[in-house]
Design a protein around this nucleic acid. Structure first.
Lengths: 156, 156
DNA sequence: TTGCTTTCAGAATTTTATTCAGAAAAACAT
DNA sequence: ATGTTTTTCTGAATAAAATTCTGAAAGCAA
């Protein structure tokens, strides 16, 4: 069940993380391997779900998403953090991330909307409808200095 | 200075966000356009920095990154949140995100490490070395329910 | 050794990316 | 409206890449 990755796999992952659209031919050249061999490895990394997908990073402001906020969500007392709550949160498209966290607060979510009034609408029309939410604490992001979902690939 | 996107651009963005490695030929077929026309648009979206890059989503656990944490960082009193602090935070590879936030706390950062002891090391060896940090409040993530950096592409 | 599995290289084939000339459409100014 | 300019598109040609396949080499277990 445990996935084992050798150095070649890690090299592939590192390069594809930096540029998902690198051609298989270029990748093969950088690794001094045949394209067919590299392709075979990439396919296996996909099968093994090491690679979960390929996404395009879009400048949020250009698609009218200028507001970013983190919201701490506390469940009602007497209710354990049900996965129903998490699922309901995750089903909202503007909710990018849902994390179950340690401590008193139950969930931390990351939300992206057009502006503060759309965030207000979202909270009123979507969050308030979810059962067993006792309170929310919102943190508005003024400026994002860094935002990379890139991992540190280990070296062997 | 303002980027204008028509419906075709948004369709392209939506599809490429879902799969950055979709072939230009497939994309053209879906949009009922010639591949050359689609390619031209994609190149322009890259030039205009609407598209900021293409990344591969890697299962963090498979590359030994099992711990995720959010850390609130407060600057020393009498010091405004200098961009130096933000830059120093952003320079740490394990720090995936650095957000300047509203309220008393100055920054909210997202950190990914192998385990809790590596997080401890990181905090002692890296965060403590940064000047003018008064306090940190760490929130450990127990379970991530959703994590998509996918935006909601507007419809026209 | 023998048999089994994995990984690789190299060649053949299919498919795609890329470039370019010119047509169509849209935008613009007169 | 009219003519002009700019943008966007199609379709064809070419270069490049993806994909498939065969078989060799390496690793491993019995």
């Amino acid at each position: 069940m445990d996935v084992v990755l050798d150095n070649t796999d890690l090299q592939i992952l590192e390069r594809m993380q930096a540029n998902a659209r690198i051609s298989n031919a270029d990748l093969a050249r950088e690794l001094n391997m045949a394209p067919s061999a590299v392709l075979e490895r990439v396919k296996k990394l996909e099968q093994k779900k090491v690679i979960q997908g390929y996404t395009t990073q879009i400048n949020p402001a250009t698609v009218q998403q200028k507001l970013l906020a983190f919201i701490f969500i506390r469940s009602s007392e007497g209710f354990t953090c049900s996965s129903n709550t998490a699922q309901a949160l995750a089903a909202i498209p503007e909710v990018q991330e849902v994390h179950h966290i340690a401590g008193e607060d139950c969930y931390l979510i990351k939300v992206r909307t057009a502006d503060s009034s759309s965030l207000m609408n979202l909270m009123r029309q979507q969050l308030q409808k979810i059962p067993n939410i006792a309170s929310t604490k919102t943190t508005i992001v003024l400026e994002t200095v860094k935002e990379q979902q890139q991992l540190v690939i280990p070296k062997i």
